[in-house]
Design a protein around this nucleic acid. Structure first.
Lengths: 336, 336
DNA sequence: TATCTCTACGTTACCGGTAACTCAATCCTT
DNA sequence: AAGGATTGAGTTACCGGTAACGTAGAGATA
């Protein structure tokens, strides 16, 4: 039945049906210009031979547009980005597009290499996490002439389009909030691993708020590890041993904050009486706590959905807003 | 500089360099048969024009093999599968392949549709989660003549290759373990949402162990929701209100188990004194607990890595074992 | 000097679809 | 009955690369 390693092409279907491949093509696209008899014969052969069209051919020849969308995210291990990716893929799928994944923050220059590879496949558009790109990356994007959405950190003058939130501002707001709570000796624990440098922007905002309020950032710790539960656990230990007078600590994300709370429980440090803890991102892990974690709410899924929507609009020739701010919301929990 | 919406092709590079496109092609592939002078002229034009090869053309013409790998996972919202996906993408990337993502378990028949779409792009191989496929899906895979790896649930006679663990056995072992701990009235809480039906297999195994031990499964609850923290929280509440005499509950995964423990804390139900709790999958969320959760350890990342390795071997013409069992390990925690 | 080989190219054909064009037979119109 | 429109096709060219083959000129060899 099936010839060795050779896929059935439209010509073979056409030949089997006794028509030219152009006629077969017309039948399959229901373009008209064929008789009912011919239609049935062609479709019968399609089924019998198990014919599947080769999208490579149509896209390559320029007759159809590609439906690939390249999506680069820093890290699947980071829960934050899997939510974003889920939002993206859901939306893209429902509009008949395919997500070509790239994890690009394991090594420097990885993004550039990935962009080059994926562009060679003629994608219809690109979604990139973060706003830092090499010059050559920008040149490649320029030449590609396809819509590009940068997500996560807001960029008032993006390469093309942008969806995210102002991480600096969210850090600043958290700083202001902690100051209004009466804290004067604040700490920060994060990692140097953050992909899009968004966490660094949050820290800068936090710093600025403290400077504006003339309090002091006693200690900031940047661990060389992934921003997870354990990093928070050991991070708080390390911070407190170096700066035991710290009154409140802002963490890179909720996972780390919850790790820190776990440490406090074991060490009988009362939260928030002895030490305040604030997280960022409103991750599911925080639901585990018997009280509400003070954190910053961000709608990750929505970032992905909006990014996809903008891209699809532009692919369809419509225009889309350059910058979309999804914002953030301070959750006044019970941990500060 | 850049012509409207038209990408630079090899012919244009060749023309600019004053050679035929064949010669330019030879230079780019470093195939030999050109002078140093010609090489320099061609490469200079490549840089100047920002030429990027069109992989669609070479793969389409059959001169090169595709480097796409289609990967279907049920749900990115389920942490378990993001770990598997991470393992897959890391390995594939490092061997120059691209992951084309598909989330296929939101609606029935979604997988079949996805397979058809992705096959049209001539992927080099496929990784599918789960072992249940429609007849037409199998027919499509048959015609495609590319390697396929089914992951997650073990299948002694897979379509092509298979990596995973025996979910039935893992449920059985958990059941046996709980019986040896002296429990006689056991419960189960899961969801009907489980993608690959692997959770159903675990429940069957659990059931069998209980039957073999002549204890009784008092109540099993299948919620119509995602298997997360909240589902566990409300699931245990519902189960206990219907069967308060239950002594121990096995959950579909750790997230649900931790949610249940949270409920117990609030209700002043002592774990494990008043109620035993067992999870499955050893997810990071369990690290939040001040004691070790009784659960089943599974190396998710490794499943993805092995699946990719087998696929890559077969793509390179080597043979690979049909079935790989990554196994599981009971973690005897402090919650039963 | 005639032939032979090697170098550095150029030419043609092909992959699998579709657009654009062509064309014969039939039907309709006045 | 002649001319025009419609129907149901077939033919050719093209997309961007590469394999396979062809070839002119230079240098080596007999």
């Amino acid at each position: 039945m099936s010839n060795k390693n050779k896929k059935i092409s439209l010509s073979e279907v056409a030949e089997a049906a006794g028509v030219s491949k152009m006629t077969a093509s017309r039948v399959l696209r229901n373009e008209g210009g064929f008789s009912e008899q011919t239609r049935e014969r062609v479709l019968a052969e399609v089924t019998r031979l198990g014919y599947l069209p080769n999208r490579l051919a149509t896209v390559f020849s320029g007759d159809q547009k590609s439906t690939f969308i390249g999506v680069s995210i820093p890290d699947l291990g980071n829960e934050v980005f899997t939510h974003v990716l889920e939002g993206i893929d859901r939306k893209l799928c429902s509009f008949g597009h395919q997500t070509v994944l790239g994890m690009t923050q394991r090594a420097a220059g990885e993004e550039e290499k990935w962009i080059e590879t994926v562009l060679a496949w003629q994608p219809a558009g690109l979604i990139l996490t973060g706003r830092a790109h090499t010059n050559r990356s920008l040149q490649l994007l320029e030449n590609a002439k396809i819509p590009v959405v940068e997500i996560w950190d807001l960029n008032s003058s993006p390469f093309d389009m942008c969806v995210g939130l102002n991480h600096f501002d969210s850090g600043y707001q958290m700083g202001r909030y902690l100051l209004t709570k009466g804290y004067t000796r604040l700490g920060y624990v994060g990692t140097s691993h953050d992909a899009a440098n968004a966490a660094a922007a949050r820290l800068n905002g936090f710093d600025r708020a403290i400077a504006d309020g003339s309090a002091s950032l006693k200690k900031q710790l940047l661990l060389k590890d992934v921003p997870g539960f354990y990093t928070g656990y050991y991070g708080i230990e390390q911070l407190l041993s170096g700066a035991p007078e710290t009154e409140v600590v802002f963490f890179q994300n909720d996972n780390m904050a919850v790790g820190a709370i776990h440490f406090c429980e074991i060490q009988k440090i009362s939260v928030p009486k002895d030490l305040g803890i604030a997280g960022w991102g409103e991750l599911p892990i925080a639901s585990v706590l018997p009280y509400r974690l003070t954190t910053m709410q961000v709608n990750h899924l929505r970032i992905g959905q909006i990014a996809s929507e903008k891209l699809l609009m532009r692919i369809n020739g419509d225009s889309a807003r350059k910058v979309t701010d999804v914002g953030f919301r301070l959750i006044e929990g019970e941990t500060v």
